[in-house]
Nucleic acid binder design. Structure first.
Length: 585
RNA sequence: GCGCCUGUAGCUCAGGGGAUAGAGCAAGGGUUUCCUAAACCCUGUGUCGGAGGUUCGAAUCCUUCCAGGCGCACCA
């Protein structure tokens, strides 16, 4: 059933890529030579190209969509293609016959065996020599393996953007983990990314924070602060901390001053305190930003007024019932929205619109906003506003992160910042550790509601899959220590046969660039953990079956090369998730 | 009511037209004179929410129903 593919001449470089062109998005399953860290064209692309040629030779047909994939059943070969099945209609005959015809005309020197199987799949087994070359390619790319050089317009990625009214909660943690990892992944995929955190220190919530702190502050002196609505105040422990810090700094000086004037001092103190805490938490969670964008700067620069005037000039804003409205229903929104309230203050949308215009004017090609699912109604509005300003609606790309449902022993923990009843991101990291927290957050799709049982998380932290992946990395490090060889000096791959477990591992490693590109293109992070766990599984199996440090020098070198490549991929992959790759465990 | 999302093993979740639907946890059994046993191997479980349809082929696409989440502010 398997037979040798005919061999003739060198392989053509995969120029015309498989599949129909997909706009400006980078190719996924066929890349141009040199596009990736390595200098090799992926095996899939080479196979697809060879299949196209063979189909042309055998049937005189030019196929555009030729898919080559990894079969989930290893006994089916290293790669498989469904060309014959997918194009059975074109050929107007039995898929198996078609497949055989293509196989007979196929020239692919890097393939050992090729055969027709099942309903008409074409299965390939790659030669050990080709495997060796691929492995060498990974090693020569080194830490750049899987990365692409930056090109194209810059993308501004906004995430977390929690207002400074308290500590980051476990829910924010999911945003931080997702956003930061996505930024790293997009960067690796060759997209230029700038990360921003947008926050405001004005508005209702902030005013409440100030009052809450003032009330606690007065309480510290046994006094009472005149608050408008005691019920509405923030009740969290941290309010007391801020009040005490304030007392520490300024003593009793606000007690007898005019409340409004005092609040003008107290409120900024409170927001600064909160913001500093948030930054600390972000740093601890290894989450970085290129810029913290303050809403206030939009007031100061007059950008908000400018944007509103422009909307009026364009005839997309109007006055009614004492408010200024955006005619967003003209641009796909359900109804019109208020920009300026009756009392003259802005809604959240007005400055945010100015902010997005600012992003545009700074030259970004795309703005990706990571928002909580509780803001699901917001994207159509802000997009309407963007279009009303004459900008393309595609400029904005919103990713909604579903809620984190916190449980403790199966019981739901109600999260309410105002009631002070919430689990902070810091507490979560205290309990399970930074690595496990970050890994756990991105292990499931951000589009799915997540159940996070703290009791289970703590209990399972030893069993967390992140350790499974890290352990594979530590094991490899241990081998190199024993061998007294630096992984980075391991470049040569002596010729020889690769065993089943080695091929399975290597095939997985070769998938890394595509995993990154797919994740970046779909703005999904969770494929990475899934992928890394597969790599770790393949490695652990290889490790169990084969001894790396054997007497036979070329065999030892070849296995060390495979280990070095695995280590590279695991370290890079974990790094993309903001998780450490330990040398020892 | 309208819109978006979700429903896959006991639990947490992958897979999103192809060959026998997977992983981790949980349950049971086994593996270490040898590079870290945080590992490996074996054992069992699924009406892929239900029903129709499209296709050579559907967990995957379409329609509809059921269940759950979120949204539909002059809050942010």
């Amino acid at each position: 059933m398997w037979h040798r593919g005919r061999v003739r001449g060198p392989v053509r470089e995969g120029r015309g890529r498989g599949g129909a062109g997909r706009g400006g998005e980078p190719a996924v399953d066929g890349r141009a030579a040199g596009a990736w860290g390595g200098s090799l064209v992926s095996l899939e692309a080479r196979l697809a190209d060879a299949l196209r040629q063979a189909a042309h030779e055998a049937y005189g047909v030019q196929l555009d969509g030729v898919h080559v994939e990894r079969p989930n059943e290893t006994s089916h070969g290293d790669f498989a293609s469904n060309v014959a099945l997918a194009n059975a209609k074109v050929f107007r005959r039995n898929p198996r016959e078609v497949a055989q015809g293509i196989v007979d005309a196929l020239e692919a020197p890097f393939v050992d065996d090729v055969g027709v199987a099942g309903p008409g799949f074409i299965n390939f087994r790659v030669s050990s020599q080709a495997f060796g070359e691929e492995l060498g390619g990974i090693l020569s790319s080194g830490e750049d393996y899987g990365r692409r050089e930056a090109s194209g317009a810059s993308i501004v990625l906004e995430y977390v953007s929690a207002n400074p009214t308290g500590p980051m909660t476990a829910a924010h943690g999911r945003h931080a983990a997702y956003g930061d990892s996505l930024a790293r992944i997009m960067d690796a995929s060759g997209r230029k990314v700038s990360r921003e955190y947008y926050f405001n220190d004005g508005g209702n919530q902030i005013r409440l924070l100030g009052e809450s702190v003032a009330a606690r502050y007065a309480e510290l002196f046994g006094r009472e602060w005149p608050v408008s609505d005691p019920e509405a105040l923030y009740k969290g422990e941290y309010i007391r901390d801020i009040a005490e810090a304030l007392k520490e700094k300024d003593g009793d000086r606000y007690l007898d001053s005019d409340p409004a004037e005092a609040l003008a001092q107290i409120t900024p103190f409170a927001t600064d305190w909160c913001m500093a805490g948030i930054r600390e938490t972000l740093t601890r969670a290894r989450t970085g930003f290129d810029r913290f964008f303050n809403e206030k700067s939009l007031y100061d620069s007059g950008e908000i007024v400018k944007v509103i005037e422009e909307l009026e000039e364009r005839g997309h804003a109007y006055r009614s019932e004492g408010a200024l409205w955006l005619a967003s229903s003209k641009f796909g929104d359900d109804k019109d929205r208020v920009l300026v309230k009756k009392d003259g203050s802005y809604t959240y949308m007005a400055p945010d619109l100015a902010y997005h215009r600012d992003k545009w004017e700074r030259g970004f090609g795309t703005a990706v906003d990571v928002l909580g699912a509780d803001h699901a109604g917001y994207p159509p509005r802000i997009r309407a506003g963007i279009v009303a300003l004459g900008l393309p609606g595609e400029f904005l790309d919103v990713e909604l992160v579903r809620l984190v449902k916190l449980l403790r022993g199966g019981e739901q923990v109600k999260v309410s910042k105002r009631a002070g009843n919430f689990v902070t991101f810091d507490e979560l990291m205290d309990e399970v550790g930074e690595d496990a927290a970050r890994y756990f957050y991105v292990r499931s799709s951000h589009r799915t509601e997540m159940n996070f049982d703290l009791a289970v998380a703590v209990q399972q932290s030893d069993e967390n899959p992140v350790y499974y992946v890290q352990y594979a990395h530590a094991r490899i490090a241990s081998i190199f220590r024993r061998a007294q060889v630096e992984p980075s000096n391991t470049k040569d791959v002596p010729p020889g046969q690769f065993a089943l477990e080695e091929r399975a591992l290597l095939l997985e490693l070769l998938d890394f660039p595509r995993v990154i590109e797919n994740a970046a293109a779909k703005r999904e992070v969770h494929p990475l953990p899934t992928y890394l766990e597969t790599v770790a599984t393949r490695f652990h199996r290889f490790y169990t079956v084969h001894q790396v440090l054997v007497e036979n020098e070329s065999l030892r070198a070849r296995r060390l090369a495979l280990c070095a490549a695995t280590k590279l991929v695991l370290a890079s992959g974990l790094n993309l998730l903001g998780v450490e790759a330990p040398e020892r465990m």
